[in-house]
Design a protein around this nucleic acid. Sequence first.
DNA 1: TACGATGTTCGACGAACTACGAAGTTGGTT
DNA 2: AACCAACTTCGTAGTTCGTCGAACATCGTA
Lengths: 129, 129
Amino acid sequence: MPRSTRRRPALAHPATEEIDLLDVLHALSDPTRMTIVRVLRSEPERACGTFPVDVAPSTLSHHFKVLRESGLITQREEANRRFSALRTVDLERRFPGLLDTVLAAHAQSHAHAQSHTGADPGAEGDAQA
Amino acid sequence: MPRSTRRRPALAHPATEEIDLLDVLHALSDPTRMTIVRVLRSEPERACGTFPVDVAPSTLSHHFKVLRESGLITQREEANRRFSALRTVDLERRFPGLLDTVLAAHAQSHAHAQSHTGADPGAEGDAQA
DNA sequence: TACGATGTTCGACGAACTACGAAGTTGGTT
DNA sequence: AACCAACTTCGTAGTTCGTCGAACATCGTA
C-alpha cells in the first residue's frame, strides 16, 4: 500500500530565491524550450502533449524537466496528465522584467521584414523558433 | 608580400539585424562569458588578457570567439593586442532593454544575504559568476 | 636577430546536451 | 480484465561544449 496519495516521486522545483540566472538563460537558449515558454506566456497552463513542437514525447519530457529545474515553469499532475505553467510571479520577483524583456526580444527577433503588417502571431502559428 | 595591411583574416562580426537572441542567451549562460560581459559593461574596452577569469589563454580565446560571433562584443586589433568592447548600441537597437535587464538580474542573483552591506563589487573583485 | 609578451589555431578529451525508441507507470474507458 | 492515452524513465547514439596543451603568428624590445 502506498504511504500517501501521491504515487510519483513528487516534482522538484527550485525555490524562488534559488533560481539561477545562468540556468534560466541556458534553458531559454533552446528553440523548443523557447517555444514552450512563449506559448505558456499567453495561457495560464497547458498539458504537455499539446504544444506546437515537433519532437518525440520522450524528448519533450526532457525539455520540460530542464524548464522545471531551471525554475521557469511549474508542473502539476492531474490524472495522467501533467500541466505546465510559467512561474511568472516568482520570476518577476527574482529577476524583475527579465521574462518580459526576453520574450519581447524574441518576438522582435522574428519580426523580419514584416513589422508593418502588424501580424504578430504571438506564440500561435509558428512552431519552433 | 601581403596584399593589404591586415595580415589576419579579419574578425567576423554579425550585423546588428543578424544578431540571434538564442545565440545571445546561450553566450550569456556561461559563467566565464557572463563575467567578461559584466566587466565590459563598466569599461569602454579592455584587452583580452586582463579579465579576472581563471582559464587557459586558449580557452579564453574560445569564449571571446563565442561572444563575438553571438554579436555581444566587438574586437579590435592593436599591435599584438586585441581589445574587446560590448556592442551596447547595437544590442539596444536589436533587443531593447535586454542587456540592462539581464545584467541587473545577474547582479541581484549574486546579492545573497548581504544586500545591506552596500558592498557591490560591480564587476570588480569577483572572478567567475 | 633573438627573445618575450599577447593571442590564436589546432587537435584532443571528457562532460553535457539533444534526440530517439523501447519499456514502464498511471488513470480513464470499454 | 483488457486497452488506450499521456507521460516518464532508461538506455543509447550523435553532437556540442568547455577545457587544456602544443604549436604558430605578430609585435615590441633587448
